[in-house]
């Protein structure tokens, strides 16, 4: 800034204009800051890489899989993985009881898991956030009614509730997803309502009211974007829960129906061969484990980066 010739004390500048002449603070952009915090958590990085790999596999399953997921090779029933006696490089991870290639089935299974995760999160987060916003804004009896209803939903063991719903709707992958979505949705309602109630008394909401913003505008334009951080974290974590629950339902025969190469269903089909052919059970189980672990690690990193309460200065 230019220095003024100053020898007397009365020549202090009238400041209001000159404030703007100063260089702006070179603060990193919000995304960079977010990425910085995210990278501090090593597990999160590993999780992210695994998750991205998982998405790529799901997307390019057609290219990656050596065989079809449903074709039965009658000449190679229960063939062990390639590195074991009796295995061959034709079926790297062996085959199952009806001669289907395990590797291909796992690769196509990634598609289903991803699909389940996305749909369930969309169903549960979508309805949950809407209901939560409504409860947070409405207060009074609407709020009470919604929250008690959610308490009832939360009071059931989640898998049991999903089971009951699938039993009513009939066993299929779509119904299983809807059931899991409904089971997970109360978490979003509570989270959103809490976040809304935290934001509502803030001055920026009041000033939006003073300029006459409508209810809907307040809800979706003013308040909702500021409540997103915890919701995103919850979405990441419920992605993995959805995959787990879907696998569990599949295992119980109430989710995806055979011959769908869904990991949980694959486990269920392989139950009777646990002792004879370890690979038919182990690989789908491992796939579920790695997947869920990666997403949870990533979710942890997201929470570190997005949740201001845990943020270190």
């Amino acid at each position: 800034m230019a220095s003024t010739d100053a020898t007397t004390d009365s020549s202090l500048p009238e400041g209001s204009k000159r404030d703007s002449m100063l260089p702006d603070r070179l603060r990193p952009s919000p995304f960079k800051e977010f990425w910085g915090y995210f990278c501090e958590n090593r597990g999160a990085i590993v999780g992210l890489f695994v998750f991205v790999a998982f998405i790529l596999i799901a997307l390019f399953a057609d290219v990656l899989a050596p065989h079809s997921a449903t074709e039965q090779y009658r000449d190679a029933l229960l063939q062990p993985p390639a590195w074991q006696d009796g295995g061959s490089t034709r079926f790297l991870l062996g085959t199952d009881a009806v001669g289907r290639d395990m590797l291909s089935r796992l690769i196509y299974g990634a598609r289903y898991s991803f699909f389940i995760g996305v749909i369930v999160v969309v169903i549960s987060a979508g309805t949950g956030v809407l209901i939560g916003l409504l409860a947070g804004f409405a207060r009074g009896w609407v709020d009470t009614l919604i929250m008690r209803l959610m308490d009832v939903l939360l009071a059931f063991p989640s898998l049991l509730l999903a089971l009951v719903m699938v039993a009513i709707l009939g066993p299929s992958l779509i119904n299983a997803m809807i059931a899991i979505g409904i089971v997970l949705q109360p978490h979003y309602v509570r989270l959103t309502r809490a976040a809304v109630m935290q934001e509502l008394p803030k001055d920026y909401v009041t000033s939006a009211r003073v300029v006459g913003a409508s209810r809907l505008r307040l809800m979706f334009v003013t308040v909702l974007p500021n409540c997103l951080a915890p919701i995103i974290v919850q979405a990441a974590l419920s992605f993995s829960t959805a995959i787990l629950d879907a696998a569990a339902l599949g295992f119980l025969g109430l989710g995806a129906q055979p011959p769908t190469p869904e990991w949980g269903t694959m486990l269920a089909d392989a139950r009777e061969f646990v002792l004879r052919a370890w690979w038919v059970v182990t690989f789908p189980g491992l796939a579920i484990l790695i997947n869920v672990l990666a997403i949870n690690l990533m979710g942890d990193g997201l929470r570190d980066a997005l949740d201001p309460k845990l943020k270190r200065s």
Partner: peptide, 15 residues
């Protein structure tokens, strides 16, 4: 009525 004021802000971490 106009106060003699100090222009600008306290330097932060980045400036």
């Amino acid at each position: 009525r106009q106060l003699p004021s100090i222009p600008g802000v306290v330097p932060g971490q980045f400036d």
